[in-house]
Amino acid sequence: MLPPAAEVLLLSAAAFGAGVLNAIAGGGSFLTFPALVYAGVPPIQANATSALAVSPGYLGSTLGFRAELAELPRSRLLRESLIAAAGGLVGAGLLLVTPGRLFSGLVPWLLLFATVLFALGPWLQRTLGAGQDLARWREPGLLAVAVYGGYFNGGLGILLMALYLLSGESRLDRVNALKNLASLVLSLLSVLAFVAAGAIAWRQGLLMMVAATLGGWAGARVARRLPASSVRGLVIATGLGMTALFFAR
């Protein structure tokens, strides 16, 4: 266990950094989850608390794409929101019934998967945006991705963008809008499930929510100055480093 002052400093810095990364390129969970585990929070509780910490950013991102969402049929938005909500609940439920020892063994593999997915993100966007149309698989695919997002948040945004590009969305602004809406809904429902189950470390979680929100505000300003490629490189290096650390553990 860390001394109280060191824990506050570590968690605040990790959450602030996560807010910055999510505002610029994504990958904030690579900081919040390992920081909570290092601070002594059990892995399942750390995963739930990490989801709570980064959740405010999804609301801001969704509001930023209101115009794009307004262009889409409300019936579609409602249907896909319900699917995302159901998947988030299922994923959260699976996490809550997973034995802690088993989840600890899965963590490095989940981190590795999320890191590789993040690294391949630009390639996926270019490749999948080339006119392939698998629209009939959009809703089953959304359910599967939402279950993953409710269980483990890392790499969620890239999976959602790949899904929407594959299913025929050609405009990147709409892809981002749908990605943010689905992330918001499934995150909200999974966090509510974690709260109901008593899986949130509230002292750490509330501190990190504030720090992540401040980081998101700062990240929006930093995004105008830093090359996106440099930030992506930092996220990938962080993800690989955390993966190696958890494999070593």
Rank of each mutant, 00 (worst) to 15 (best):
P140W: 06
L163A: 11
L69D: 04
E169H: 11
V107T: 14
A114N: 09
L63I: 14
G168H: 07
V107A: 11
V90N: 01
L110F: 09
G150E: 02
G88F: 03
L163P: 06
L181W: 09
R74P: 01
L96A: 14
L120D: 04
R136W: 03
A135N: 01
A85L: 14
G168I: 12
A119T: 01
V54M: 12
S55Q: 13
P99V: 09
V116D: 11
G91D: 07
R171F: 02
L69R: 10
D173L: 15
L63P: 01
G155Y: 00
L172Y: 11
V116Q: 06
T127P: 01
L128A: 02
P56V: 12
V175L: 07
E71T: 15
P122Q: 03
L134I: 01
L69P: 02
L172K: 14
F65A: 11
A114P: 13
A130E: 10
A114F: 03
Y151L: 06
A177R: 12
S61D: 01
D133Q: 07
L166P: 00
G60F: 15
G87W: 00
A86W: 04
E80C: 03
A70T: 05
D133F: 05
G105D: 14
Y148A: 07
D133L: 03
L165H: 04
L82H: 04
T127G: 05
S61K: 15
A144I: 12
V147F: 00
V147E: 00
S170I: 06
G64E: 05
L52W: 13
N153D: 06
W109H: 15
V147Q: 00
A86G: 14
P108Y: 10
K179Y: 11
F103A: 12
L134T: 01
T115R: 04
G131V: 08
A86M: 13
M161L: 15
Y148R: 03
G93C: 13
A182I: 00
L106T: 12
Q132S: 04
A119C: 02
M161A: 14
V90Q: 01
L124H: 03
L77W: 11
L165T: 06
I158D: 07
N180Q: 08
E169P: 02
S61Q: 15
P99Y: 08
G88V: 09
G105N: 12
A84S: 14
V147W: 00
L165F: 06
L143T: 04
G150T: 03
S170Y: 00
Y148V: 09
V54F: 10
G93M: 13
A84H: 03
L117P: 10
